[in-house]
Amino acid sequence: MQILLNSEKETLEKQSTISEFLLAKGLNPETIIVEYNGKILKKQEWSDIELQDQDQLEVLNFVGGG
């Protein structure tokens, strides 16, 4: 199965939820905004959604400093 992560192709070995996928990518759930097929998802929704082939995921990660 293949999805698009920030417009780059990404191959998934096994079925996974958005939560599982983000965790596997090493992303900190506290510092990211996730857009799934054009819609901003709340953090609570991440574990409810199984990624499907050709899904589009945009992840905006913030780092500290100001």
């Binding site: 900190n28 506290e30 510092t31 990211i32 905004i33 913030f62 780092v63 500290g64 400093g65 100001g66």
Partner: peptide, 9 residues
């Protein structure tokens, strides 16, 4: 204009 990443988010 925050310092911490989780507040920026």
């Amino acid at each position: 204009a925050f310092d911490q990443a989780r507040y920026k988010k």
